[in-house]
């Protein structure tokens, strides 16, 4: 390795070794250990923590549900938005909309989310709708709806931009060629636009899904903290009951699930863009 190469790579390598690999190794080692009587970690080699994992199956299921729902509704809202930005919006409208999507993220996450708490609380939107006589009673805060709303809102740019980029890159002449060959608007969308933007769709979904696996603040703030996620379980195990080894095992399980998802993603994108790219015809 030449000196310049070494110098270029050294900071990043050091960073990753110190802040990613080392903690990961520690967590892995802890997960085979035992809980010290006063809490924390006691050296041991046992599979006890892993055999206890089924007792925490509910947070895992809740987390996967949250991540799936969040990704699903994210796609539902981000795809049409990205499609509009890439194909319909004028240059001016495009820059305005992109700014509108990005600007809220200059404010801290907590402030934004507390703003939603206020908006959806009984003195917010429900009060207005009741006063207008549109509904008799309405609860928004601490409902699944509030959670999904918070998630879609916070993860929208992450989902929108990869899709937007893939749609923007799409050669518009292909759409004309499709119509020329007899496909109508819908047929062209399903056979040309959607398959050719699948890579953006998969990238956005993966990003959002992975991040949602660790998400617990939004459900805690907007959902009233009634549902227990892996994130809650980890906070609980490490900080409250101080069962570090079991917490580590839970963390390892979470890492394992993420690993599967990332592998799936890599496999999918390789299929979509590589030599083996197949016709992803949805008809």
């Amino acid at each position: 390795m030449s000196l310049p190469t070494f110098l270029l790579l050294a900071p990043a390598t050091l960073w990753y070794l110190l802040l990613l690999v080392a903690p990961l190794v520690i967590v892995a080692v802890f997960s085979f250990g035992a809980r010290a009587p006063e809490g924390g970690y006691a050296p041991a080699f046992t599979f006890e923590q892993y055999s206890n994992l089924p007792t925490r199956i509910t947070p895992f299921i809740n987390t996967l549900k949250l991540a799936s729902l969040g990704t699903f509704f994210g796609v539902l809202i981000a795809y049409p938005l990205a499609y509009f930005l890439a194909t319909r919006a004028t240059a001016r409208l495009k820059s305005i909309l992109v700014a509108l999507i990005i600007v809220p993220f200059w404010t801290s996450f907590l402030i934004r989310t507390y703003a939603w708490v206020t908006i959806m609380s009984s003195r917010g939107i429900p009060a207005i709708l009741i006063r207008l006589g549109l509904v008799n009673e309405l609860v928004l805060l601490n409902t699944p709806f509030a959670i999904v709303l918070g998630i879609v809102y916070n993860y929208l740019p992450l989902m929108t931009f990869p899709i937007y980029v893939s749609l923007e890159r799409l050669d518009k002449r292909l759409l004309e060629a499709s119509k020329d060959l007899g496909a109508n608007q819908l047929g062209t969308f399903l056979q040309i636009t959607l398959p050719l933007s699948a890579s953006g769709l998969v990238t956005g979904s993966m990003l959002v899904f992975i991040l949602l696996m660790g998400e617990y603040l939004i459900p805690a703030l907007l959902g009233g903290g009634k549902i227990f996620f892996v994130g809650n379980a980890l906070v609980d195990l490490f900080l409250q009951s101080r069962n570090w080894p079991f917490g580590s095992a839970v963390a390892m399980a979470l890492n394992f699930i993420m690993l599967i998802i990332v592998s799936l993603y890599l496999w999918l994108t390789a299929r979509l863009s590589g030599e083996q790219r197949q016709a992803v015809s949805l008809l």
Partner: peptide, 16 residues
Amino acid sequence: HVNMVFQHYALFPHMH
């Protein structure tokens, strides 16, 4: 009932 051969062919890249 008209078909076009486009200037840069516009072949669909995701199909053989």
